[in-house]
Simulated scan of single mutants.
Amino acid sequence: MTERIPFTRSSRDGPAFRTVHHPAIPRPRPSAENLLRVQRIRWNEDLLVVAAAGEIDLATAGRLEQALRGHLPAATVLDLSEVGFLGVAGLRVIESAAARARTERRTTSVVADSRPVLRLLQLFGTETQIPVYRRLDHAILEVPNQ
């Protein structure tokens, strides 16, 4: 926002003006609920789809972690196709859930198609530990039959 203030010195054409810049007033950050939506969809008795939409970062990773807690079926597909940003905190939640699934003899897979999400999964080598698919229907077809 700019404000014009008359300069104290005058010229023959009238008072001179200068522009004063005020620092922008910081806006409050949206709540975690507004930054990330997480939905648990029970596909069948052996498959749970956890769909996330928004940004997964340090502020919102807890919401994803909460959705991946408790008693889970034989297979879990984490659908990140609507996620525009995945931070390291979110990646740690995904890796932790997959490690827990392995110890409990369950499967976990990820669906992602946005460049920022795929890039982070690739940089940390997560796609070598957890199957990553570009489409949800492909992930569901690959779920082992129990």
Rank of each mutant, 00 (worst) to 15 (best):
M1C: 15
M1K: 15
T2P: 11
I5H: 08
P6V: 05
F7L: 14
R9H: 08
S10G: 11
S11K: 09
R12M: 08
R12A: 10
D13L: 09
D13H: 09
D13M: 08
G14E: 06
G14M: 05
P15L: 00
A16W: 12
A16L: 15
R18S: 01
T19N: 08
V20T: 08
H22D: 06
P23D: 15
A24F: 12
A24L: 15
I25S: 07
P26K: 10
R27I: 08
P28E: 00
P28C: 00
P28R: 06
R29I: 15
A32Y: 05
A32K: 09
A32P: 15
N34G: 02
N34I: 01
L35P: 07
L36A: 04
V38Q: 04
V38L: 05
Q39H: 14
I41G: 06
I41L: 14
R42W: 08
W43D: 12
W43M: 11
W43C: 08
N44E: 05
E45Q: 05
D46S: 13
D46V: 11
L48S: 05
A51W: 10
A51M: 15
A53I: 07
G54D: 10
G54F: 10
E55V: 04
E55D: 00
I56G: 02
I56Y: 04
I56V: 06
D57L: 01
D57T: 04
L58C: 00
T60Y: 12
T60N: 11
T60R: 11
R63L: 03
A67I: 05
A67R: 08
L68H: 03
L68I: 04
R69K: 13
R69Q: 14
R69T: 13
G70C: 01
G70T: 03
H71M: 03
L72T: 12
P73M: 06
A74G: 10
A74Q: 13
A74R: 13
A75M: 04
V77L: 07
L78C: 12
S81L: 09
S81R: 12
E82N: 15
E82Q: 15
V83C: 14
G84Y: 07
G87W: 00
G87Q: 03
V88Q: 13
G90Y: 00
L91G: 11
R92D: 02
R92T: 06
V93G: 06
V93M: 06
S96C: 10
A97H: 05
A97R: 05
A98V: 02
A99N: 07
R102G: 03
T103A: 14
T103G: 11
T103N: 13
T103R: 15
E104Y: 05
R106G: 00
R106V: 02
T107K: 04
T108Y: 03
V110F: 12
A112V: 07
A112L: 09
R115D: 04
P116V: 00
P116D: 00
P116L: 01
V117L: 11
V117N: 12
R119N: 03
R119C: 01
L120Y: 02
L121T: 10
L121V: 13
Q122P: 06
L123V: 14
G125N: 12
E127V: 03
Q129H: 13
Q129R: 15
Q129F: 10
I130C: 02
I130S: 03
P131S: 08
V132F: 13
Y133K: 05
Y133E: 02
R134N: 04
R134A: 07
L136T: 10
H138V: 07
L141Y: 06
L141G: 09
V143Y: 00
P144D: 10
Q146K: 11
Q146G: 09
